[in-house]
Design a protein around this nucleic acid. Structure first.
Lengths: 252, 252
DNA sequence: CGTAACGTTGAGCACGGTCAAGGTCCGTGG
DNA sequence: CCACGGACCTTGACCGTGCTCAACGTTACG
């Protein structure tokens, strides 16, 4: 079976055959979840670890007035709650946006992996750190970017993230979310989200129609969003802390 | 020597004498850093782990137009870069805001701790997960809250975080940051930050004058900010997934 | 083929940004 | 000791991004 998890984690570690076998053993038959279903709610103490295999889910917080802020999109290969056992209660909820295929992994399996497979452990670490880096970038985006650039930036991010798990074709991909959900992720109103999407469409930069996203001019989108993919850490890091930097590169 | 690190981590684990000794050994004589100095810059690959012992630092991102977004405040007991070695390059910078006392811990020491002290390892895990939870709450705040409530919410958070490391007196604390830095953290302009602070002052809720913050009416501040401290995970979690929740508490 | 969810568009307005000026505080040097 | 300068705080006026309300169009699905 095709495995977005292995595909994603391979960025962080060179897996051995034994690693791959261990990871494949984790991937049992996924179960389907309907769209817009809660997987985990605020205050829960989940027993198993949830892994998205197909579809799109999100982390979200509900504000006292009922408004929702989506704080992360969970794509195939993403864990929903790898480490929450340490924290205790969930401080946010997780819900599907589209129909999803999910796998529940017993915590004991995770413990086994982290005790016996150092390369996998390192890759899991890497994944959680990338999640954190994405959170920081979202803060910067919501705090500083205008709404139109915020949208453009998010689509650059989603494009690259989907591409690493093989869910893109050319510069098109399926994104089964509504404009309301997009707005909730970006901290803007649905009306404004719609207008800014129309704008990007009119300027022949990208089109989001229904569930299908087509980036018409990726360079223009990147330039407009002032997008730099560094924070996604998709480049294989060099092993010993002195990679691409030239010695003379003191400034910066 | 008083140790904000131990004080903070004790929330997550019951340390043994041996744990405490190991942690105390880490705390060598800190060195002083002047305010507004970069500790780590974007693109760096830090060798040692940096720990704040006194003063306030921040994580920040610089946008292409020069605007700055502060994505985290680093208080005494907070690590700056516990795990970046796994990621490779820093995707953000870290700088002092006030004069700080910092400790640099060799990565080998961290490795030793995580290999030989399971309770410390768990506590370090807990600390990084709390950092992540704070990032999520900031996204929700910047995305959904009005500027005045955003300020109030941040002060509730800082109050509690400083309290856990013994840096508060009654409802007062020292916060050596400027209004510009506050604005950069909240994603608002300095002018607006100033006006909203005046507002909170006028309403006898809290006062920030220079480096001193005094919460005049904590209940009013909490209510106004709609602040719930859950995301800070300051309560000792119960050991086996079924703590305070009553069995009949199905909803929610 | 009807209905509900989703998308689109317009009008008016408010939160908060920008620009600009003046005030206060504090450290430094004459 | 006082003068100066720089960093920080405060306030006013104006304006723009983006919100709210409201209506209408479109798509999907039972």
């Amino acid at each position: 079976m095709f495995n977005p998890l292995i595909r994603k984690l391979s960025i962080a570690s060179d897996f051995t055959e034994s690693d791959n076998r261990a990871l494949n053993d984790v991937i049992v038959e996924p179960h389907s979840v309907a769209p817009k279903q809660d997987i985990i709610r605020t205050g829960d103490r989940p027993e198993n670890v949830h892994l998205v295999m197909d579809g799109i889910a999100c982390r979200y917080k509900i504000m006292p007035n009922g408004d929702r802020q989506i704080v992360a999109f969970l794509l195939p290969g993403d864990f929903c709650d790898l480490h929450v056992a340490i924290l205790g209660e969930m401080d946010h909820g997780i819900a599907t946006l589209s129909p999803c295929k999910m796998i529940e992994i017993p915590r004991t399996t995770i413990n086994d992996l982290t005790e016996n497979y150092p390369r996998i452990t390192r890759a899991l670490w890497w994944a959680t750190l990338v999640d954190e880096a994405i959170l920081r970038e979202w803060i910067a985006g919501i705090g500083q970017r205008m709404a139109d650039k915020r949208i453009a930036h998010l689509f650059c991010e989603l494009y690259l993230r989907l591409k690493t798990v093989g869910q893109t074709e050319d510069h098109s991909f399926t994104l089964p979310i509504t404009q309301q959900e997009l707005a909730d992720a970006l901290g803007i109103s649905i009306v404004h989200a719609n207008r800014m999407l129309m704008d990007l469409r009119t300027r022949n930069i990208m089109v989001m129609r229904g569930k299908h996203v087509k980036i018409l001019n990726y360079d223009a989108l990147k330039a407009f969003a002032e997008f730099s993919p560094d924070y996604l850490h998709l480049e294989r890091r060099s092993e010993n802390g002195n990679g691409q930097r030239s010695v003379s590169d003191k400034g910066r």
